[in-house]
Design a protein around this nucleic acid. Sequence first.
RNA 1: GCCGGGAUAGCUCAGUGGUAGAGCACCUGAUUGUGGAUCAGGUGGCACGGGUUCAAUUCCCGUUCCCGGUACCA
Length: 490
Amino acid sequence: MSRLVRPQTLRGFRDVLPAEMSLQNELVRRIRAVYEHYGYVPLDTPVMELLPTLVGSGGDEADAQIFQLLNPEQQTVGLRFDLTVPFARIIAQYTPDPIKLPFRRYHLGPVFRADDPQPEQGRFRQFTQVDIDVAGTESIAADAEIVAVMVDAFAALELPRGDDGPPFYLRVNNRKLVDAFLAGVGIVDPERCAHVLRVLDKSDRITDRQLAEELREGRYDRSGDFIPGVGLTGGVVDALLDFVAVTGATRAEVVAALAGHLAPSELSEAALAEATELTAHLEALGVAEESARFDPSLARGLAYYTGTVYEGTLAGGGVGSVVGGGRYDGLVSRFLDEAVPMVGASIGLDRLVTGLRNLDVDLGTGADRVQVLVLVMPGVDAAVSSGIAAKLRAEGIGAELYVGKDQGKVGRQLSYANSLGYRAAVMVGRKELEADQVTVKDLRAGSEQRADIADRETYRKAGQTGQISCAREQLPAAVRGLLDDGDAGR
RNA sequence: GCCGGGAUAGCUCAGUGGUAGAGCACCUGAUUGUGGAUCAGGUGGCACGGGUUCAAUUCCCGUUCCCGGUACCA
């Protein structure tokens, strides 16, 4: 029995090590630039909220996914499970002053769900969302703008185009269309409508036959569990499946075709009007048809969406959706008597990273890491090297001082620099001190020039390959010249 | 949540009712202030708790975690 504490992460949680964190930083930098370009402003909120803020009016299952804890005052608090609910609270709490509507904000931060984690598929109990939302407008222009922002944000990632389509695309729908269809066949019970939407939401994961079975009486899954069905009858199921299978060459064509499947009603007309207006705005915004398709089967089974819904996919990423969102006009009414309409979308950063890794995408990150190691030479006070490093930094050149063991062993230090891929090593030993010089070693050139040497002795004798000595005051210029040269070669 | 499978070195994996191995990684060395490759040597492990047994890493039960499926997902 060991007295040591075993180092481990909590189930469903993970550490993000430097290689991935660099990538995340780069992704966020690009995404944020696009968000800001559209006029979204930054906002942050605490990861914890009082439980009543988070707990919805309906759904014990939803509440079960909230991490709960006690604060020192013995109040039950919960970790936020998305950034949307805190945004609704912000709107309720800070309008009309200091926040004026309409209000666009972006928000990046961790959210928590006490789910069954599936790390390989990018499902964790803590994950990072990068949200944008607009509060205080019913205009469909806002719904369309969210789509355009997402398409632009992913364009900024400069992903390689696939063989059969764009690397990223959104599916877009309006839940009022399905609602209108269901109302047309006499289904108006919200519970049943929600169930239908949940089943339709699986349409890309299960076969048409399984879909039909779940809409009827239910089916047995592979493990033998029974999945209860909606209980619709044959004719309605067929009509519904026809409805959600409608396709077309353009978004406008899909919407026009859907009109033919809807029984005339006020609801149908409103739904079609919204969908038509959305396609017009997308067109005006220059959103390519292949980047945002209209898909009547998209449901996003979640209860609080009231109109437009979106889902974004990384083609070939193997992680499901990386973007989700839609219009939710009822959320603020939990906090305020008046309704504040909202629409927004969220990028799942962890899934995006996983997807990019599956696609072998290289965003050329690592620019945030220093390229220069200052060695501590034998017989020379380490403070000399500290001073050299400080000089470089003062000139705007990132530099790391060697602080590992065996200071003074040049080979060990160069080996360290080599294993981390540094570009240059700076040496000030006794020889340099006497001549008031510094030595700058180009690690890449040295490596290339000695690559074919198989004999150990010869290799060692060629050790000084790629290095130059110069006057001390010329050090920054010498290092900079080497680094610039390296960037050009990348 | 439910069904099934798994857990052996830092990593990927072999293997056994009598306390275990490989490859890679890591460390040391191959004379002085020079990286890589090579060569020689070395460190390091049977998830946790209980049971059966003369003896358990191996068989059984439980726990935790991981994987696959399924359900759910604001």
